[in-house]
Amino acid sequence: MKRLALALMCLPGLAFADGVSVENPIIPLAPPGVAAHAAFMSITNTGDTPRQLIGVSAPAYAMAHIHESTEKDGVAMMSAVDLVEIGPGTTVTFEHGGLHFMLMKPKAPVSEGDMIELSLEFANGEVEQVTAMVMKRHKAHDHSGHGHDKHHDHKHGS
C-alpha cells in the first residue's frame, strides 16, 4: 500500500494535501483567440471533517473563478459559485454541464500539453496546488461513457 501511495504521488497531475486529493485535472484546449478556458477535475475529501472550497487562483490567467453551468427550460447559463462543500469521504467532480474552474484571459497563449498551475483555496486556509494538463477536447471526451472515473456520479456542493 505504501508503495502504491508513493507511486501515486509521483504521477503528474495528482496532488495531495491534508485530507484532499485531486484526480484528472485537465483543461480542454480552447479554440485560438478564446479568452475563457475551463479546468475540470475530481476533488475528494479523504479526511474526517467537511471541507469548503472557496476559491481558485491561476497565475497564468488574469482571472479565475469557481463557476457552474446550469440549464433551465432549455437555456444554458453560468453563475459564479462562492463555496463548494465537500463532505468527508465524498468526491465533487468538476465536469461538463456542472462545476468548472473558469480561467479568463491567459497571459500567454495556451497550447496542447501545457501544464497549468492552479491553487485551490479552502476555508480553513489551506491551499491545494494542482497542475492541470491542457489537452484536446476530443481526447478528454473520448473517455465519457466508458466508465472513466472523472464521470462518476457525484453531488454538487453548491
Binding site: A35, M78, G97, M102, R137
Partner: peptide, 12 residues
C-alpha cells in the same frame, strides 16, 4: 466565444 463549457462541448 467566452463560453468555457457549454459551447465547446456542444460543438465537439
Amino acid at each position: 466565444l467566452s463560453c468555457p463549457d457549454v459551447c465547446p462541448f456542444t460543438l465537439g
